[in-house]
Structures are given as structure tokens and as C-alpha cells.
Amino acid sequence: MLKKALVVGVGLVAALTLSACGGSSDPASTDGADSGSSDALFEVATDFTLEGSPTFDAIDKRGKVIIGVKEDQPGLGFLDAATGERTGFDIEIARWVAASIGYDEADIEFKAIPSANRESAIVNGDIDYYVGTYSITDKRKEQIDFAGPYFVTGQGLLVAKDNTDIKSEDDLAGKTVCSATGSTPIQNIKENFPDTKTEEFETYSQCVEALLDGSVDAVTTDQAILLGYASQQPDELKVVGEPFTVENYGVGIQKGDDVFRTHVNELFTDGGDTWQAIYDATLGQSGSKVTQPEVDAY
């Protein structure tokens, strides 16, 4: 029987927030390599079983959870190359899910998966589930399933601090916009902004580097991600305009594993206090206020 994950202390949550920043990222995966303070946010379930879930069976047989993540997105999914510490909202959501099925930090292997390879990583069994600004779309649901959404944001624009030409998506004609290969935002630009040039890299951090060196005019992805980059270099970068899409972040899981999907959806639905504590300790440090979305229990 599920032992609910619980918030266990405001003081400990505050301690976690002190580590929600870092430097550049390293694409190598780690196996429980960081010293995160997730125990401050939730407990690890004991004597847990989940009958009828191929995902859980694979985890149980292996004795560890393999989670696909991003590691170059400050505030969401970030790896500090110097310390090996992973921080961010998505990372804590991933840990929460693992804890809910009985696995603590020592039994988690994080794998950095580029946006374009997320579905194949799930389909091929390279990871057990994926948590990393993964927008729920009908096209993706042809190959995989999603639990959630656990967060809602929208596509935005990041530009150089001194850029006065781009104030919103209405100013993109003739400009070069960068995003991650295979991401929803780059597809939106290609399909709906025909007069805009595009540049693609595996990671958003590469796009930010291109923006800083002047080879692209803007970076586009979910505004939550862009705010993280802007907060790292406020004298060089800024977010402009308002979100011009709606993006629902979900946990990507194996197609047809209704048991695991239902478990995660119930975790989100019943764990509102834990969700809020995770948000407050990560993205909430920007001062933004959000409401936890209802899951789509399809």
C-alpha cells in the first residue's frame, strides 16, 4: 500500500533553496552523484509494490531507477559540474516520484537526454521515465504516455539586454531564433512564423551561447526556462513579451503502462503540499506565484 510522501519541515525546505544555483553543465550521467536535500521535502515509501506495471517491474528487477532529465536549465534541471549536484523543480519532481515507489537518492541514476531523443529513450527502455520540461502533445502520445501535467507554462523569448528590436513574437520576421532540436517551441516557429530563420542545437544552453556571441537574435523555449537563464546573467540577457503558447509539462512513461501513470497522477493529485514545497524551494525563488494544475487522468 502506498505510503504518502510528506513535507516534514519548513526549516529543512529553506535549507534546500540555498543550493538552487550553479555554473555550466556536464552531459555525462551520474548515479546518485549529488548531495541533494530532498529528504527535507518527502519521505521514501517502504514495502511498496505496484502490480501490473512493466515500468515498476523493470525498476524492481534492476534495483534502481533510471530517470531521463535535463541538466542545463537553471531552476528546473541543472547539474553543477564542479560539485555533481543536481538541482531544480523538475529534478525534485523526479526524485519525488522515485521516493513514492520506494527509491531514495542512492538508488537513482540520472541520464541527460536531448529533447530529440526523449521518446526513443522511453520506447527503448533506456530510462524508466522522463522529467524535463516535457510538453504533453498528441503527437508524442502516439509513442509514449504522460502523467500530469505537473506544471503549466508558455513559450517565450530571450534576447540580449540591449536588444530593442524584439519586444514580442510579432517582431521575429527576418530574425534568427534558436531552440533545441525536436522541441515543441522550434516546431512552432517553423510552422507559424515562416519569415523567421531558425537555428537548432541539442541543448538550450548552446542556444544561449549563440545569443551571447551574436550569431542568433533570440532564444525561444518555455518562459520558465528562459527566466532561469536571464537570472544567471541579468546584465546580458532579458525575457521579452508574454507567453504565446500554453505548454503542459508531464512525466513521460512507457506507452500502455496505465498502472504507473495512474500512480503518478494520484501522487500529484494527493500531494499538493509537497508539490508546493518543491516549487517554493526551486522556481518559486524567482518570486513567481503559480497554482498546481489538475492532472489529465486520460
Rank of each mutant, 00 (worst) to 15 (best):
D213K: 14
Y150N: 06
F110D: 01
K238T: 02
V290N: 09
C21T: 08
S19V: 00
G22I: 07
E202Q: 15
Q206H: 10
V246T: 15
A81L: 04
G125F: 12
G252E: 06
T291V: 15
N265W: 01
F260P: 01
L211P: 02
Q187R: 14
S115D: 13
H263Y: 04
T49Q: 13
K161C: 03
S179N: 08
A28T: 05
L6K: 11
V246H: 02
S24L: 07
S168T: 13
V246R: 10
A173W: 06
V69K: 06
F244C: 05
L212S: 09
G84E: 05
G102A: 12
T203D: 02
G132N: 08
D165F: 03
R140V: 08
D258C: 06
A116I: 14
D128S: 09
A218Y: 10
V177S: 11
V246E: 12
Q73N: 13
G182D: 11
V152G: 02
G88Y: 01
G84N: 09
S115V: 15
R140A: 14
D165H: 08
G75S: 04
L12T: 08
G182P: 11
E71L: 13
L158H: 03
Q143I: 11
K70R: 13
V290T: 10
Q254C: 04
P234T: 07
H263N: 10
C207N: 04
I127D: 07
P74E: 00
V216A: 06
D72M: 10
D47C: 07
V216P: 06
I136E: 03
T220L: 02
I59N: 06
T49R: 14
N117M: 14
F244Y: 09
T153G: 06
G182L: 11
E85W: 13
T55N: 11
I166Q: 08
D34G: 04
R95D: 05
T83G: 01
K167D: 14
E209H: 04
V239D: 04
L12M: 01
A82H: 02
E142P: 05
A20K: 03
V159E: 05
K64H: 15
F268A: 03
I253N: 02
E242Y: 05
F193Q: 12
I186H: 03
D296G: 13
L211I: 12
V295D: 01
D60A: 15
L41R: 02
E51P: 05
Q206P: 00
G156F: 00
D107R: 15
N124G: 12
G174C: 10
E294A: 15
D162G: 02
F268I: 13
P149A: 07
Y229V: 03
D34K: 04
Q232L: 11
K190D: 13
L18A: 08
V152Q: 09
I113P: 00
F110Q: 02
E169N: 10
F244Q: 06
V10D: 06
E51Q: 12
A82R: 01
A218H: 11
E202I: 02
E236N: 04
F244T: 01
N192W: 12
V44Q: 05
C207R: 04
G287Q: 09
S168H: 04
P243N: 00
G9L: 03
E191Y: 10
D217H: 02
G272N: 14
V240C: 00
